[in-house]
Write a protein that binds this DNA or RNA. Structure first.
Lengths: 251, 251
DNA sequence: CTCTTCAAGCTTGCATACAAGTTTCGTGAG
DNA sequence: CTCACGAAACTTGTATGCAAGCTTGAAGAG
């Protein structure tokens, strides 16, 4: 089957949401075209759409790159999420048992992923919680907006998140769902504001993101047989974060 | 100078925001290409971007059309605006004198436009208030989101708004700014919720929008010399709104 | 050895050509 | 007069070709 523009768009976006594509990744038109077995035209359309959604950027005649949000843009993204998600919880008047049930299931899945140590699905689920929330409490339009914002946030976390806080996030989610179950939407909104603040506070927005992160990963100890080598001698100026990216997670 | 894709996109979006393009308007690629003196490729890019922003839609091999939101979509749009705009006012902690001043100026401009009877700039200003608010209280990202939502709302008003309520809207805006001046952000948020509810309540979402609106406008009394003719005999089934569209406004 | 210059290769930007489907309008049958 | 049919005109969908600019690496000067 021939993938449509929407398929390509969705494939890239969900890969970003799952944390499988790092910020700054180059997405060549021809390579993607080969990968999806379509012509560059289709790929270009998808990239253009993704650009208006704020997840990729084109650098003239150099290529398409997954966005690397600046500290300022990161703050804007979190501010926007705080506004929208607290607005949602503050506006909601009631919640159906079905919606509540699916949220509970989601949180349970989060905990399971954390306990089993499944880093990939864990990161995906933590971001997905917010999308799921918009889905059951809001509407399609709102869900789409939150989805794009979550993609942004995921990329931000990959760039600026020095420490792992999956458990705290999941716990926050749990509390929010508990407040929803008690129909205390005010409290849910406050908890959400706190939660988003926590996540933002867990970032290191003052240190410039490491431009060599991908290189460093390629040269990480596990790549070699036994002895962890010292970092390459030259060009190691300003390396703020030492963690391999697998320890990072979003949200 | 050769208009870029972004120029075309912006030209169309601002025309929609100003109420100069009606929902359902067909936007032919070739016509736009001629108009802007570029090839279809550039136009297509712009349309594609506008499609992801939710203001136009493509009907396969038939053409691009300015969206005609369904009643359901209209409700979603208003719900989303209520969530975001009350969320914004609820989140804000302070407002600078400069921001307050520019909002006051804006409301004054609204009143002036209403009193002078300048329908065009009036409609534009009423929608712009919300964008302006996001601009001074929020951030660029939020402003962009609100802008797209306002475009949607403008189109919705053109489809479903049977009566003129410019004065009420402007008065609501005034009250909101007054609450902001008093630093009573809770109150501002409530007023905003009320305001958006008012606007939505002023719509007639239950009656199907008139598919003959544009035709009817072409045949409106002012087009002819003196005598207002009766409507054309055939094909006048189900005409919910009788007002010429110039009486309608958004927001 | 270092720095500069330049050419080759690669990538996107843009236009155009053709394919595929839709609409419209004229023609002819009933 | 009405309806059905079909061809012509028109519109978007997609691929492709060439132009323009960026990157890189090699060669040469100092």
């Amino acid at each position: 089957m021939n993938p449509s523009t929407a398929n390509i768009e969705e494939a890239i976006l969900s890969a970003i949401l799952a944390g499988r594509i790092a910020p700054g990744t180059r997405l060549g038109e021809q390579k993607l075209a080969d990968l999806f077995s379509v012509s560059r035209t289709r790929v270009r359309e998808a990239m253009m759409r993704l650009e208006t959604r704020g997840v990729v950027q084109v650098s003239a005649r150099r290529g398409w790159y997954v966005v690397e949000p600046s500290a300022e843009e990161a703050r804007e993204a979190f501010h926007t999420r705080r506004v929208i998600e607290t607005g949602l919880l503050h506006t909601v008047r009631d919640i159906s048992p079905k919606a509540l049930g699916s949220l509970k299931e989601h949180v349970a899945a989060e905990r399971a992923a954390i306990e089993s140590g499944d880093v990939g699905s864990r990161a995906c689920l933590l971001g997905d919680f917010h999308i799921h929330l918009a889905d059951v409490l809001g509407n399609r339009l709102l869900t789409e907006i939150i989805r794009d914002l979550t993609a942004r946030t995921t990329l931000i976390s990959m760039l600026y998140q020095p420490t792992e806080k999956a458990e705290e996030s999941s716990h926050d989610h749990e509390d929010i769902v508990a407040a929803l179950e008690a129909r205390d939407f005010e409290r849910a909104a406050s908890l959400m504001a706190e939660h988003i603040d926590n996540v933002e506070a867990g970032l290191d927005l003052d240190t410039k993101p490491d431009p060599l992160a991908s290189l460093r990963e390629l040269l990480s100890p596990s790549t070699f047989a036994g002895s962890p080598p010292s970092m390459p001698h030259a060009h190691t100026h300003g390396a703020p974060h030492a963690q391999p990216s697998s320890q990072r997670t979003k949200d």
